[in-house]
Design a protein around this nucleic acid. Structure first.
Length: 581
RNA sequence: CGGGGCGUGGCGCAGUGGUUUAGCGCGCAUGGUUCGGGACCAUGAGGUCGUGGGUUCAAAUCCCACCGCCCCGACCA
């Protein structure tokens, strides 16, 4: 019997027969760490912008992740199903999202010119099932979920699999009679998610989030802290306050300047905060930035914010509504008789003025004079400006003060792995998904929606655990348990030993990939590092002579030399240790 | 959508108007010597130079248009 026959019998993957295509050099388009690792290790392959094939190694990892998710979703009473990926336009018109989703939605027509979309998410489909299948409060609560491909025509896909246009999502939906039920479903999901991410070996934080297109209910994001992350998180270094930058609250540091009379100063050609402060020899916190916002059919607004702060658009939208946009140069010139950079609030009474809290009682400030080439100094907000309302509009900065405990806040890049969201009746209401309560009253079902990006888990593990030699998979999601390397595989004694080792490991229930290619050792070791299987076992002529096999732990670099008889026990011991650690 | 970059065998690159069959490294195939961290020799296969049009005696190379891919921003979640 040949080694290949034995591999078939024992279900061991042969490296040279598998579709593993490691790359010797970094692909030129790989920018982020995870993308480099996944492409070089032959886990994924790009077909078009934001569209990837998951090659056998990558798919195997995604299947492991799916199993973990399945187990944890079933544990909280979730029922798995599979909804279609393609959906007729009418459902989305009922919810209003056919329009709302805009260009992010892939759309298509069938041969009869009927319109469809490739589903970016499934609230409408769930509500459609619920409105016919759920009749009574006795049918509730329900948790339905699926693991399925989603489509979103992202304006800019990036970082390989981190933001793509076709991706796999676990999406679940809870249906409840009332708010208390929703709270319970929400909490169950939160617990399930904590177990899922922990089991996948990820370090993450749970933050308050904003809902965006989904609605306005309570939501939590599960964020992995990675340098390459697209989102920014505000974290308190003293207490447990943590929030997405988009909605984070903080206290800024007040600065005071000497009061004085309003005085015009020439600032020729100096428009930006940087230019004006350099020119006048003051700090940016001494300036008041004036930003003019307009919206067709509404009155224009002037927003004031301190020179060292930025406007948080989400907070602004909550104050004045979503439709406002920064005014054009022409609109500014028309309203203030000056170019952008030279406009200011002093003496303005034909435009409503909103100011950030940090400017309350500010005096001795510098701002535009509403004359090209001039600013004013000595601005006293209370005295010189008709502020309609003060509000929290500024973006949180590193070094701000925590609103909960007064500790210093820091900002970190992070990546959204999952979010859980209380929808309420947004979709059940618009689609008419109602039930009869105990008293016979018809009420809309209270819904929640909960998502996890599977590829993001895979990529995030690369970001957090990978090193410059490649992937480092935790046992829970690794494509194999053991990477068996055979050196000088053509030597009979070596071959005999490797066959024995392979059988022992497999009989012990470990999954094995064997690399017995007749090539130099370095290539095999480097490929093993790249692929990142947790335990590497080496069989070679030197070791065979002395009954010595090498065990190498990828994550720690630990090396153990074992005899044939102890090998399996040693591997099992490492597996146990790493599972619990 | 704005800004920047790139497109040449499977991968990474060189070649910027005329050295007859478009190169180099890696990979691949065959044979041989090697073999504990990316060995060596020999022979060989593999390319409509992103697409279309134009200029020219002559275009991978110059001009125009389009397409695709990457990065930054805008946007989105």
């Amino acid at each position: 019997m040949t080694s290949s026959d034995i591999c078939v019998i024992f279900n061991v993957m042969k490296f040279d027969k598998s579709l593993i295509s490691t790359l010797r050099e970094d692909p030129k388009d790989a920018e982020s760490k995870s993308q480099r690792i996944l492409l070089r290790g032959g886990f994924i392959r790009q077909l078009a912008s934001g569209i990837h094939t998951y090659l056998p190694l990558g798919w195997s990892i995604l299947l492991k992740i799916s199993s973990i998710i399945r187990e944890e979703m079933n544990r909280i009473g979730g029922q798995e199903m599979l909804m279609p990926a393609i959906s007729p336009k009418e459902l989305w018109e009922e919810s209003g999202r056919w329009k709302e989703y805009g260009e992010d939605m892939f759309r298509l027509k069938d041969r009869k010119e009927r319109e469809y979309c490739l589903c970016p998410t499934h609230e409408e489909i769930v509500a459609d099932i619920a409105r016919t299948k759920i009749r009574s409060y006795r049918d509730l609560p329900q948790i339905w979920y699926q693991i399925q491909t989603k489509f979103r025509d992202e304006p800019r896909p990036r970082s390989g699999v981190l933001r793509s246009r076709q991706f796999i999502m676990k999406d679940s939906y809870s249906l409840d009679c009332d708010e208390e039920g929703l709270d319970r479903s929400f909490k169950l999901h939160r617990q399930a998610y904590e177990r899922i991410f922990t089991r996948c070996g990820l370090e993450y934080v749970i933050v308050e989030a904003s809902g965006g297109l989904m609605g306005t209910g309570e939501s939590r994001e599960f964020m992995a802290i990675v340098d390459g992350g697209e989102d920014q998180l505000v974290l308190c270094t003293k207490c447990n306050y943590r929030a997405n930058l988009q909605i984070a609250q903080s206290r800024g540091r007040h600065e005071s300047f000497n009061d004085g009379a309003l005085e015009k100063v020439a600032t020729p050609g100096k428009r930006t905060v940087q230019e004006v402060t350099d020119f006048l020899g003051v700090g940016p916190q001494n300036l008041v930035k004036s930003m003019f916002f307009t919206q067709a059919g509404s009155e224009p607004l002037l927003i004031l914010i301190r020179g060292d702060d930025e406007i948080n658009e989400e907070k602004l939208a909550r104050l004045i509504g979503a439709g406002y946009a920064p005014a054009s140069t022409e609109e500014i010139a028309k309203a203030f008789n000056a170019q952008p950079g030279y406009i200011g609030p002093a003496g303005i009474d034909h435009v409503a003025i909103y100011a950030d809290e940090m400017l309350r009682d500010a005096k001795g400030m510098i701002t535009g004079a509403n004359t090209d080439g001039y600013h004013v100094r000595g601005l006293n907000l209370k005295r010189d400006v008709k502020v309609k309302q003060y509000a929290n509009l500024r973006q949180v900065k590193s070094g701000d003060i925590c609103v909960k405990c007064g500790g210093p806040l820091t900002l970190r890049n992070a990546l959204e792995l999952g979010h859980i969201f209380k929808l309420g009746t947004k979709y059940s209401g618009s689609l008419g998904a109602n039930f009869l309560d105990e008293k016979g009253n018809s009420k809309p079902i209270i819904m929640g929606s909960y998502g996890i990006g599977l590829e993001r888990i895979m990529a995030c593990v690369c970001e957090q655990k990978g090193d410059d030699r490649g992937a480092v998979w935790p046992i829970s999601i690794a494509p194999y348990d053991i990477h068996l390397i055979v050196l000088n595989p053509l030597e009979e004694t070596v071959q005999k030993t490797s066959d024995e080792v392979m059988q022992m490991l497999t009989k012990a229930g470990l999954s094995v990939i064997i690399d017995d290619r007749d090539i130099s050792a370095g290539i095999k070791f480097n490929d093993a590092d790249l692929i990142g299987v947790p335990i590497r076992v080496t069989v070679g002529p030197k070791g065979v002579k002395n009954n010595r096999l090498d065990i190498y732990v990828r994550a720690t670099g630990e090396t153990i030399t074992a005899g044939k008889t102890e090998l399996v026990d040693n591997c099992m011991e490492i597996m146990d240790r790493r599972k619990s650690g």
